[in-house]
């Protein structure tokens, strides 16, 4: 019988090696985005907005059009682009340092206006690029370089569940939380992202796709340990959506 191809590197990923650390979730999430855009045949009509943070260089890796926004301003830039180009698929790709800290205002108001954009939010509970400092999403008791004794609610406040808050707004048509640390998770994430992109093109409002990710360098562990830690600590607090 003839040999069939089951899986290969998505066509829209460039040959450039990712600058990410070994095992970083960003690589897998980039791959999922490239696959879904290719499946939908939208490579010539997609515009992504990159944030400030580790994923700022996404434009080097996924072969579509990109705009790079100032720190936290991706949703504001996406709003402008989508309003001028309603036929394009416009999405932002932001980390928790970008979206949940400096960009909270832009994100909430874009969601409340119900702009037809997709927000891809990667939550790994630390500032990865700058060396693993506490982020608004850091779990209670979690050790980072700026919370060496663990995050304390009295001193640092509580971890910020952006997704749950955004999902309450009228302008949001879809909120889902996914992870890419298992093969089953990646398959679910692919479906969820496709749904978000389709809803956005139907003009239904803002779709918010959260990925719970790992930061093995920021968490000071190996990639395999980080995946296990995500399963045991992150997922109980940031539970995944069914779809």
């Amino acid at each position: 019988m003839a040999e069939e191809l089951v899986y290969k590197k998505p066509r829209l990923l460039t040959d450039k090696d990712f600058h990410f650390c070994p095992g970083c979730s960003h690589g897998t999430i980039h791959k999922v985005i490239a696959e879904v855009i290719d499946q939908m045949g939208m490579e010539n009509s997609s515009i992504g907005i990159t944030p400030v943070g580790c994923s700022v260089l996404a434009y080097n890796y996924i072969d579509i059009d990109w705009v790079q926004a100032a720190h936290g301003r991706a949703c504001a830039v996406a709003t402008g682009i989508k309003r001028l180009n309603p036929s394009k698929l416009v999405f932002t790709y932001q980390g928790d340092g970008d979206l949940a800290a400096i960009g909270t205002g832009e994100t909430i108001h874009a969601a409340n206006r119900g702009d037809n954009i997709v927000v891809i939010y990667v939550n790994n509970a630390v500032y990865g690029m700058t060396g693993g400092q506490m982020a608004p999403t850091t779990l209670l008791g979690m050790k980072t370089v700026t919370t060496p004794n663990g995050r304390d609610a009295k001193l640092h406040g509580y971890p910020f569940k952006v997704g749950e808050m955004i999902s309450q707004l009228e302008g949001v048509c879809y909120f889902t939380r996914q992870s890419v640390h298992t093969a089953a998770g990646v398959r679910r994430a692919r479906k969820a992202l496709r749904r978000a992109f389709e809803l956005s093109m139907e003009g239904r409002g803002l779709s918010f796709v959260e990925f719970v990710g790992t930061c093995s360098s920021g968490w000071k562990m190996s990639a395999v340990e980080a995946n296990k830690w995500l399963d045991e600590n992150m997922l109980p607090f940031y539970p995944l959506s069914a779809e």
Binding site: Y7, P22, G23, G27, T28, V180, A183, V186
Partner: peptide, 10 residues
């Protein structure tokens, strides 16, 4: 599917 750097063809 889980390879972050898309190194494996199956």
């Amino acid at each position: 599917t889980v390879c972050p750097d898309s190194c494996i063809t199956v």
